[in-house]
């Protein structure tokens, strides 16, 4: 760790590209390579990456100057890392992404919407909602009349779609 040249970078947007990372991180020194963190299942970026510099000093300067600034309007976090090894580019959450996205409760547009668990719950809720609505296949005749009367003289097809 005392001589590492690699940084772990977290809290990225899923849409942040390598080139954006390159632009920002090269401000602390020449970059050797960038490894994007990918979801194990979909092989798409899942919000973290590794940045490797040529020297340890550059990695430290990056910690001093770049850590905690914004990229793609998100505050990014950097940590010194013992070094990248094959396999570490994949998320370790159960759904393939990062563990933190597994349990996240807030909606985060730039990180794929809901966290994985919450996304499943939301999906389930939506399914149930649809089921319970679809169960009422026929709208009671009286109700239809009421709706139409409130909307004024609407076309029959419009009223029927409810």
């Amino acid at each position: 760790m005392t001589k590492t040249t690699t940084l772990y970078v977290g809290n990225l947007s899923f849409y942040t590209t390598e080139e954006q990372l390159y632009e920002l991180f090269s401000k602390a020194g020449e970059i050797k390579r960038i490894i994007m963190g990918l979801s194990r299942n979909t092989k798409t970026p899942c919000g973290f990456c590794f940045v490797e510099y040529y020297t340890h000093e550059n990695a430290l300067e990056c910690m001093k100057y770049v850590n905690g600034t914004k990229l793609d309007e998100r505050i990014i976090r950097t940590d010194l890392d013992p070094g990248f090894k094959e396999g570490r580019q994949f998320g370790r959450g159960r759904s393939g992404g990062q563990v933190r996205d597994e349990y996240r409760q807030e909606y985060d547009e730039a990180r794929g919407g809901w966290g994985h668990m919450r996304a499943k719950q939301e999906e389930e809720r939506k399914r149930q909602q649809e089921e319970s609505y679809e169960a009422i296949a026929t709208v009671p005749a009286g109700a239809e009349l009421q709706i139409n009367s409130r909307l004024g003289p609407a076309s029959p097809s419009h009223g029927g779609s409810y």
Partner: peptide, 11 residues
């Protein structure tokens, strides 16, 4: 110091 210092200090 690196130019980036003055950006992040200003921030």
């Amino acid at each position: 110091y690196r130019e980036m210092y003055y950006s992040s200090l200003a921030i």
